[in-house]
Design a protein around this nucleic acid. Structure first.
Length: 456
RNA sequence: GGUGAGGUGGCAGAGCGGUUAUGCGUGGGCCUGCAAAGCCUAUACAAGGGGGUUCAACUCCCUCCCUCACCUCCA
């Protein structure tokens, strides 16, 4: 499988000779997660699911940044400890991403639980004289790392001339960044250089090294992390280990709203929590993967509605498949069509995670079910169901199953209702429909049969 | 100002040097106790502007214009 590598600017084959180790930069837990976070995480979820479906072992590590100025400010405002804020939002994170059917990572390391590891790394950089101690903290000396800028394609001269680089008297060079910041207030830890807390970038270098080793397969996150976060991570990690850091850098595009990036400061956030109130997790997932991951997606209700329409068709098709009992002559050439769709689907994902194309293959399968209803036989349905479920599994889409017992019950009610309808006792028939609706089962009358569907 | 990614039919969006992607929407029809859906059919002569390369460009090259992101914390 190939992925576009930001560092080399080319698509690169993922080294799957062994376990595929992936480090994903997670969220800073100071507030609710939004659909932009969800997009990045869902994209990596699909990457992981696809590799795993091909029998490749994946080890995904995703951090929580739980020490940060925003967390501290919020804690002050609410007059609680910083850890109270971070643990609240970590819990919400789990609740929401479980609801979105995102597979749990192998490990969710927290910065605050790796202070000593970070200090060791800083010590290594100080020993090598790549980091230095100033009055505000310990800084990384960018000038000592000649490759600085290779990921974001920036020249250090350009960065210096850019007026937006913060001027800080405590630094030797305006480009230098903090590895350790001196501070006495909560949260803070002792260090050989003075009490304080870690800089942002050091946690990812430390925790990826600790859990995935020196030269792991994929490192990623949102596009907005390329600079300075990932650039600085490379500098620290490679200066420390003298070895190349990640083999592939993968970055996911932003979600915009009215053409502007979704961000807290603009106040145009769509939180996952609020979106889950109006849209099913499946629709939200489709929304996040309907365009290519490298490009931005502009949020709109209309777009969500469109995906909901499409997804409803898929649900209908699936329910038809599982309710097909009849036998007969299947469609000609169906096997070759099915295998074609199947291979198109996985090829699309193999080629730089083209989920858009994969999704269109999936919808083609849906259309086959809806158009060829007359020819759908039990054996054919079973065949299609297995492909259908395979695809849903890779995309992380999920249709709730009903128990055998419940199924029998629904069928008998449908049969009863059918009898009422034959006798034109519509009130009774509608009564049954309402009764099922109350249980989350909706009915669709068709010419030869009534299809039931689990509501979402 | 620098760096990167883009500009495709009403909207969303891929692929591809030469054969209408597709979906949504919209019009018409079928089906139908109602409901909801579904199916059929029609519909867009799309490629930011200007140059080039080529027998042939939406697809490659140059140039101009525009949009977005990053250059400060950010998925």
């Amino acid at each position: 499988m190939k992925i576009f590598d930001t560092l080399s600017g080319n698509e690169k084959e993922i080294d799957s000779s062994g376990k595929v180790r992936i480090y994903l930069c997670g969220v800073t837990v100071y507030d609710e997660s939004h659909i932009g976070h969800a997009r990045t995480i869902i994209v990596f979820d699909i990457l992981r699911r696809h590799l795993e479906s091909g029998g490749i072992e994946v080890e995904l590590v995703q951090n929580f940044t739980d020490v940060d100025d925003k967390i501290i400010n919020r804690a002050k405002r609410e007059n609680v400890l910083a850890s109270a804020i971070s643990s609240r939002y970590i819990q919400e994170y789990y609740d929401e991403f479980d609801a979105l059917n995102v597979k749990r990572a192998a490990k969710y390391p927290k910065a605050t639980e790796h202070i000593q590891d970070m200090l060791n790394l800083v010590q290594g950089l100080v020993d090598k004289k790549i980091a230095y101690v100033s009055k505000n903290g310990v800084y990384f000396s960018v000038a000592k790392f000649p490759d600085y800028g290779k990921l974001s394609k920036k020249k250090t001269e350009d960065l210096i001339s850019g007026a937006r680089v913060e001027v800080d008297q405590a630094k030797n060079d305006p480009l230098d960044f903090a590895l350790w910041k001196f501070s006495d207030s909560d949260p803070s830890w002792e260090s050989p250089w003075g009490r304080g807390r870690p800089g942002w970038h050091i946690e990812c270098s430390t925790m990826s090294l600790k859990y995935l080793g020196e030269n792991f397969e994929i490192h990623g996150g949102g596009r907005d992390l390329i600079f300075p976060h990932h650039e600085n991570e490379i500098a620290q990690s490679e200066a420390y280990s003298n070895k190349p850091y990640a083999k592939i850098w993968m970055h996911v595009g932003m979600i915009t709203i009215d053409g502007e990036k979704m961000s807290k400061s603009l106040g145009n956030i769509k939180s996952i929590k609020s979106l889950l109130k109006s849209w099913s997790p499946n629709v939200l997932r489709i929304f996040c993967i309907a365009g290519h991951y490298s490009k931005p997606i502009d949020y709109s209700e209309e777009l969500l509605k469109e995906h909901e329409t499409n997804w409803n068709k898929a649900r209908l098709a699936y329910h038809k498949l599982i309710q097909t009992e009849k036998d007969g002559q299947p469609i000609e050439d169906i096997d070759s069509t099915l295998s074609q769709i199947k291979s198109e689907f996985s090829k699309a994902i193999d080629e730089n995670l083209n989920t858009h194309m994969a999704l269109s293959a999936f919808y083609r399968l849906v259309t086959i079910c809806l158009v060829n209803e007359e020819h759908l036989t039990k054996s054919l349905s079973e065949k299609i169901i297995s492909i259908f479920e395979e695809m849903m599994n890779v995309l992380g889409l999920r249709i709730e199953k009903v128990s055998e017992e419940e199924k029998v019950h629904i069928q008998s009610l449908i049969k009863q209702r059918e009898e009422f309808r034959q006798q034109k006792k519509y009130e009774e028939a509608d009564g049954i429909r309402d009764k099922l609706a109350a249980k989350g089962i909706e009915l669709k009358d068709e010419i030869h049969q009534t299809i039931w569907m689990k509501k979402e």
